[in-house]
Design a protein around this nucleic acid. Structure first.
Lengths: 152, 152
DNA sequence: CAGTTAAGGTTACAACATATCATCAACGCG
DNA sequence: CGCGTTGATGATATGTTGTAACCTTAACTG
């Protein structure tokens, strides 16, 4: 069982469901948070916290420190609105917040684009493998570096 | 098919096979490289390049710059003597250089210990999943964050 | 010996991440 | 109302991770 989720549902819809998910968790959807989410969601590539800081600074016409960006990105990650790409030290919007998976990302070393796929069977196998050794899995990190179809 | 490799084969043996693997690739096994490999191999946990720099500096009684350490670690990674743990920005010795796998690491968030397991079937599934979408996988990154049996 | 190459040294800097303390607005409540 | 509390953000500093550019040295080769 393998489901591929192509990104780029419409920006507005994504924004709304992100907001709903955050509020459902008892958190506020502030202007600052909306601005940061908008920047991350506008990109198909993982963006670094510093890139976000720069873009949000521009958008708001005043400097936003990396500090503040990290705080909010961490909140987003904790609530599954945004995923961290470990192998890139960067962040990408979750195209379907509210729906929790162990995500698998395909990251193109040439153009930087990240594709989000899910395969619950693989993820479960990874968790099981860990459990077999007495290890309690909290968060599998499954990322594939390589070359995307466009860059071939 | 699932094989678990416990670490801590004897230091000397590991050192020898690492040296053999590097020389087989046409690279030199210098004092500096031996020193760096020794530091990494002495640890059961992933070590940061800066930690390595500090320890090698001590061991040699003179400062070794991170720069030099990165150069050599990169060489080791390229030749499979050492693996990079992406989710920890750190490095760990490969307990069986020469034998190439897509590695799976279980990293304890409590004590930092990393256990290296391999499951070629899972790794192959991940590669296949990527290929199905037209993505050419170069290097799967499969790491599981969680809690080890000792820290439970 | 001159020319070339590979290894490592030195310095500087860029990119990523966190710590600490201050400010401010919103809210609850005596 | 005024006061204390809480949550969000700002400001500043610092810590950690990673690279770039250029130089020196040793070894090998013609």
């Amino acid at each position: 069982m393998s489901a591929i989720h192509h990104h780029h549902q419409h920006g507005v819809a994504l924004h709304d469901s992100a907001r709903a998910a955050l509020e459902a968790a008892g958190e506020q959807w502030t202007d600052m948070r909306a601005a940061i989410f908008a920047v991350v969601a506008a990109e198909e590539r993982p963006v670094s916290a510093y890139d976000v800081a720069d873009k949000v600074s521009q958008a708001r016409g005043k400097r936003v420190a990396p500090n503040s960006v990290y705080r909010i990105l961490d909140l987003f990650v904790a609530n599954n609105l945004v995923r961290r790409i470990e192998s890139a030290n960067a962040f990408i919007a979750n195209s379907h917040p509210g729906c929790v998976h162990d995500c698998i990302f395909l990251i193109c070393d040439s153009c930087g684009q990240a594709t989000h796929v899910d395969d619950d069977k693989i993820a479960q196998n990874v968790r099981n493998l860990a459990s077999q050794t007495g290890f309690a899995p909290a968060q599998p990190v499954i990322e594939v570096r390589g070359t995307c179809a466009d860059c071939d």
